[in-house]
């Protein structure tokens, strides 16, 4: 039995197709350990070697990685939810009900999307907390901390724009309370200091631009949908790329120097 198994394994691993994809064999050697990382487009984000403490959970808390994982989960579940959700005031709430009660695994996907989003907010805070406590923002990593703050803010904005989409009482009022602050933007809001003096009115100020109307209504739903599904995720992805690239360029995981 074992012999048959080995034969099959042998014949798969030795084929030209397999080799053309993975390019190296699996014997545990120094060389293969390096190739495993170098020959893999996903893993080569990593260096081939890192300081010992960089692999310890008690040092990294793994929070950056968890944030990225949860981002991927929300992206995948979010795209799946888009198959059934229509961002218009007549349909949005009905589609939520449909997703929850009729679509197989609809409720599960929605739950996973929401809880992963909550988890991402927590993980990104903890990541910032860890980076601060290890002083990892100090030279030469100053700029990557700035990129991290941008990512943190974008995560919160993503969560916030997603909050409106179910179009229920919870979402519309949370977003009303949130966006009403924009009325009071100094200079650019119609109730902010020096806003009225500059000619700001409910229908031409910064809040109007955000909502597409003078109150949270159907245009707001559409705007938030576009922000939530296209603009902010792309923005986040671009800065994630910069963030990861800078981690490597700035010398990898921080350590006592």
């Amino acid at each position: 039995m074992q012999a048959v198994f080995d034969r099959i394994k042998e014949s798969v691993l030795k084929t030209q197709v397999w080799k053309s994809i993975f390019r190296h064999d699996y014997e545990d050697s120094q060389r293969n350990r390096l190739l495993q990382v170098l020959d893999n487009i996903w893993l080569h984000l990593h260096p081939t070697k890192l300081p010992r403490h960089g692999a310890y959970l008690r040092f990294t808390w793994c929070m950056g990685g968890i944030t990225f994982l949860l981002f991927l989960v929300t992206a995948v579940t979010g795209v799946l939810l888009m198959f059934y959700y229509r961002p218009t005031a007549e349909y949005a709430f009905a589609d939520m009900k449909y997703l929850q009660f009729d679509v197989p695994f609809g409720m599960f996907l929605r739950n996973m999307h929401r809880w992963a989003a909550h988890g991402m907010v927590i993980a990104v805070w903890l990541h910032m907390f860890r980076v601060f406590l290890t002083g990892s923002y100090k030279p030469p990593r100053e700029f990557n901390w700035v990129v991290g703050v941008i990512l943190l803010t974008t995560t919160l904005l993503l969560s916030f724009t997603g909050y409106l989409l179910p179009w229920d009482q919870l979402s519309i009022w949370a977003v009303t309370v949130g966006t009403n602050m924009a009325r009071a933007t100094p200079l650019l809001g119609h109730e902010g200091p020096f806003g009225p003096e500059l000619g700001m009115k409910p229908d031409n100020d910064v809040r109007f631009m955000l909502l597409g109307g003078t109150q949270v209504g159907p245009p707001t739903l559409l705007r938030f949908y576009v922000l939530h599904c296209i603009f902010l995720p792309l923005f986040l992805a671009v800065f994630i790329a910069v963030h990861f690239w800078r981690v490597r360029k700035d010398g990898g995981i921080s350590g006592p120097l």
């Binding site: 350990r33 390096l34 495993q36 990382v37 893993l43 990593h46 260096p47 081939t48 070697k49 890192l50 300081p51 010992r52 403490h53 960089g54 692999a55 959970l57 793994c62 990685g65 350590g255 006592p256 120097l257």
Partner: peptide, 16 residues
Amino acid sequence: EGQDKIHVWPYLTRNE
């Protein structure tokens, strides 16, 4: 200790 290096595969990838 901070300079002591280990292989990413398998030590880091395993933890991840």
